[in-house]
């Protein structure tokens, strides 16, 4: 038996989530047995041999010029071809925009079960169990798979990459019968440069602002603090609905579910929908003038105070710290 990992590349670079997924695949392989094999649709080899260091024994490269950008139909063919070649017990994807789009197609093609956005996997008695948040984190669901292979996508920033082994993966070609001329959906361009900024779901640190900031202009302070911390900017539903911030920054149910190392909530009272989306963060800081705000119940560290005073002082303190390092 073996474990197959979808190796996601963008702009000819392997994305960091792949190392997280390979890390979990290696841990599972230690229990279930069998090698960890990658499959990568790409225009050319994005340096797949280096993935040996992250736990892959070999990587199948499905090379096609149409695979420079994500192509749902073509990538599905490539992953299905790899599954037929490798006959894995488990197939893992990152729960990125690409993995979330691709994995259900593969599952439907094969008629097998898929658990998306998992936060833990376990192999009990040779059987895979997937743990995943539901209701945007208000509950946790555990799923088993009646059929083989079991498919799962893994939430970014939750799984640790494997310790560097110093090994090199074998790269083997995988032939995929794909005809781009027959494609009925095609990525024609990127509306904003990919990788220009950190996405919320992949950020190590997030600074979020809420209605307590009183005015859209005050988000300047959130942006400054985010810059000092090297963080992404998030927002509560209230300020997104008010049109202060774009929906792509919304954290919580009907927005993004995030698990950063550090989450700083400024002027966010802590409605249940918001808490659902961020309470799996490793460390939560709340800054709010209302000591009764529900956000303080989930915060590891709370500061009761006015944002106009606390945030500039915090920006200054972080800048001083950065200058020392």
């Amino acid at each position: 038996m073996s474990i197959l990992v979808f190796v996601e590349q963008r702009d000819a670079r392997v994305r960091s989530i792949v190392r997280e997924v390979l890390g979990e695949a290696s841990r599972l392989a230690a229990v279930l047995g069998g090698p960890v094999v990658g499959v990568c649709p790409a225009a050319s080899d994005p340096g797949l041999a280096t993935l040996g260091d992250a736990g892959a024994e070999r990587v199948l490269l499905a090379a096609h010029e149409a695979f420079a950008r994500y192509d749902a139909a073509g990538y599905t063919l490539a992953v299905v071809a790899a599954i037929e070649a490798v006959k894995p017990q488990v197939v893992l994807f990152g729960a990125s925009a690409m993995g979330r789009d691709l994995a259900p197609r593969v599952a439907a093609r094969l008629g097998v079960g898929l658990a998306t956005d998992c936060t833990a996997l376990a192999a009990d008695g040779g059987r895979l169990t997937a743990t995943r948040p539901v209701f945007a984190g208000k509950a946790i669901q555990k799923l088993a798979f009646p059929r083989v292979p079991a498919l799962a996508s893994l939430r970014p920033k939750v799984f640790a990459p494997a310790a560097a082994s110093g090994r090199t993966a074998t790269v083997e070609p995988l032939t995929v019968g794909f005809d781009p001329a027959a494609a009925r959906a095609k990525v024609v361009r990127m509306a904003a440069a990919a990788g220009a900024r950190v996405d919320l779901t992949e950020a190590d640190v997030i600074v979020s602002g809420g209605r307590g900031l009183q005015d859209a202009g005050n988000f300047r302070l959130i942006e400054e603090l985010a810059e000092a911390l090297g963080a992404a900017v998030g927002a509560s539903r209230a300020v997104v609905d008010a049109g202060w911030r774009p929906h792509s920054e919304q954290v919580g149910q009907t927005g993004k579910t995030v698990s950063p190392k550090l989450y700083v909530a400024v002027g966010i009272s802590g409605a249940i929908q918001h808490l659902a989306g961020m309470s799996s963060s490793r460390c939560i800081v709340a800054i709010n003038k209302d000591p009764e705000a529900p956000i303080f119940k989930v915060a590891d560290y709370g500061v009761v105070g006015r944002f106009e005073e606390v945030v500039p002082a915090l920006i200054e303190a972080v800048k001083q710290l950065n200058a020392q390092v």
Binding site: R69, Y70, S96, A97, M98, R184, A185, K186, V187, V188, R189, M190, A191, A192, A193, A194, G195, A196, R197, V198, D199, T201, E202, S248
Partner: peptide, 11 residues
Amino acid sequence: EIEGGREVVEV
């Protein structure tokens, strides 16, 4: 919406 940008798809 994808990480860090938007993919434009013709279908």
